[in-house]
């Protein structure tokens, strides 16, 4: 099975996971858990982007302008993980699923664009994006300690 096929399978599984709010629309997760689940969806989108777009190592890459979406998409993804919007989305499954699809799409764009510029770059920029998504769980819309 080649990488592209695996990539489409990963993308399909991730897209199915994005539909969970239709099934479990009563779930009220703490923000930090919600961030981590979003990070998981983004990891699926990012992996799919690498596998589907990936080129052989050392191959001639594309235009440097691919770097712009590769760097802007993770920023938009962090804005899409706006913590105070989570309670709204938990009551509106359609919007919640749409948010998931946006996150997966942005993660896909990040790594696909990076790989389009240079083979291997998607892993590094995608890794930095997943780091942002996971790190968000520790403090973006969340406070720990002092009983809060």
């Amino acid at each position: 099975m080649n990488g592209r096929v695996v990539g489409f399978i990963v993308l399909g599984i991730t897209a199915l996971a994005a539909l969970v709010p239709f099934v479990d629309h009563q779930a009220e997760l703490p923000i930090w858990q919600h961030h981590l689940l979003h990070a998981g969806l983004m990891a699926g989108g990012a992996l799919a982007g690498i596998l589907i777009t990936g080129r052989p190592r050392g191959s001639t890459g594309g235009s440097g302008f691919w770097l712009l979406p590769a760097l802007l998409a993770p920023m938009f993804a962090m804005f899409a993980m706006w913590p105070s919007a989570y309670s709204y989305f938990e009551l509106h499954p359609m919007g919640h699923v749409l948010e998931h699809i946006v996150l997966i799409a942005l993660a896909y764009i990040t790594t696909a664009a990076a790989e389009s510029y240079a083979a291997g770059l998607g892993w590094l920029i995608g890794g930095a994006m997943i780091f942002m998504a996971v790190a968000a769980a520790r403090g973006f819309g969340v406070t720990f300690g002092n009983g809060s």
Binding site: F79, S84, M132, A135, A136, R138, F140, G141, F144
Partner: peptide, 23 residues
């Protein structure tokens, strides 16, 4: 970028809490 976006979010919507040690 992550901490910057969190602070921009807090600026626009003060309900978005930020953990000071994390920041």
């Amino acid at each position: 970028l992550l901490v910057g976006i969190a602070m921009i979010a807090h600026l626009l919507d003060p309900h978005v809490a930020i953990d000071p040690l994390w920041a």
